[in-house]
Design a protein around this nucleic acid. Structure first.
Lengths: 228, 228
DNA sequence: GAATCTCTTCAATATTTCAAGATAACGGAA
DNA sequence: TTCCGTTATCTTGAAATATTGAAGAGATTC
């Protein structure tokens, strides 16, 4: 039985998560502050950590960063809330493997968990940098370069691109992207997504009208592939 | 047309919701107390339930819990009011899929509904990957390969093929396929089905005119077999 | 108050879906 | 077996639908 550590200070969310995870036959450990979470993660044999960002004593990002510094490679799923959107990017830099924006549905969370626990599918994006073909990205500085020529992406463009990179190869629908990157509380249209795609393509693709990385999947959405 | 059941005792909210949903082309059923809601949910074919927590006779959480106990897996969206915020996550424990806090904007509600109704969000018997003979398919990435050579299928071709794979070995009539894959609202001819079969064969069969997987059953329909 | 970022709108363009018709294959009856 | 009506295959092209890309309005940030 796989063991999951939940680090979350809101008791309602904590018990809610605990229940649904136990129903899915996971063994659950809990911690209600960052320090305890960090100790548990170091002490126990754990398959995955669900880590809130806002935590007493030591925040989720510090916990994550410190664990990575210690060489702990366990998949970490971050829980972020709306106001912390800007911090999501940090979570990436900090070494988290994926994130879910609150409020989330159990289905979505479970899907992410199953994904992270699938053998060989651990996305170890522990670095703040990512490179493919002739493009390299620095998520900490929000900069990139293509063939050594630097370019800039806005914060949101970076988030969108990051989302695609985290879910490399998967087809992502516009609605999913809106929910996960824009969040539940804003309502741009799916056209907006298209425009972000276009604008990102202009920067990362050699020939934006014949994309090799950020591909259209007609009637469904888009997907990112590392090698075209 | 997707059918939504609203269980809500406040007539103002109820009619408001009904109007919004009908505008969005949903079919709407209503119930004004928990017991009636429960009965409706069990009796009718429903795509989603919008369930208030405070209800006469039987409260929303009990309705939800009981439905889940009965094995009803329909997505349930809970309506909670401000004071119950702390209990929001209880919805998870109880088996709801998501919740909206009153007062809510129509946009927000619709966003949640679309989210819950989106295929793949509710856990159904999803095929993620599938392989037979020299062909492998990835339904999440919407790509396939034959003898290691990648090929592409359109979204609908994938759906048709998936339907055959799920019903492996069964003979499927053209009409059944139209009803199940195309749905009741569209009316293509049975010739269209033939075209899809043709086009899928071109991609997955070594010799499309002598199919070994997607077989014709004369005068009846087609069937998929893994090994020919 | 300028500059940048975000989002919407709309026409052009591309892809997919579907139907119709010609040809080939099938299967039962003589 | 051969014939003939029925069913399936496959090509082609038009209609429906989706995506692209530019331009501009509105919001935010510095």
């Amino acid at each position: 039985m796989k063991r999951i550590l939940i680090v979350e200070d809101d008791p309602a969310i904590l018990t809610g998560l605990e229940t649904i995870l136990k129903e899915e036959q996971y063994e659950v450990l809990t911690a209600m502050d960052g320090e305890k979470g960090y100790r548990e993660a170091r002490k126990e044999e754990i398959a995955l950590i669900i880590l809130d960002i806002m935590l007493p004593k030591k925040n989720g990002m510090d916990v994550c960063r410190d664990l990575r510094k210690d060489g702990v490679g366990i998949p970490i799923l971050m829980l972020t809330s709306k106001k912390e959107e800007m911090d999501e990017v940090m979570g990436f830099e900090v070494g988290a493997n994926d994130y879910v924006t609150k409020p989330f549905s159990p289905q979505r969370l479970l899907a992410r968990i199953r994904n992270l626990l699938r053998p060989g599918n651990v996305r170890d994006k522990e670095v703040a940098e990512y490179a493919f073909q002739n493009v390299s990205l620095d998520f900490k500085r929000l900069e990139g370069s293509k063939n050594g020529v630097p370019f800039e992406l806005s914060a949101k463009e970076f988030e969108v691109l990051k989302y695609f990179i985290i879910h490399e190869g998967e087809v992502i629908s516009r609605d999913t992207l809106l929910d996960d990157v824009w969040g539940y509380e804003s309502f741009p249209t799916t056209r907006t997504v298209d425009n972000y795609i276009l604008s990102i393509r202009k920067k990362i693709e050699d020939n934006p009208s014949q994309p090799r990385h950020l591909l259209t999947v007609h009637t469904v959405g888009y997907k990112f592939v590392k090698e075209g």
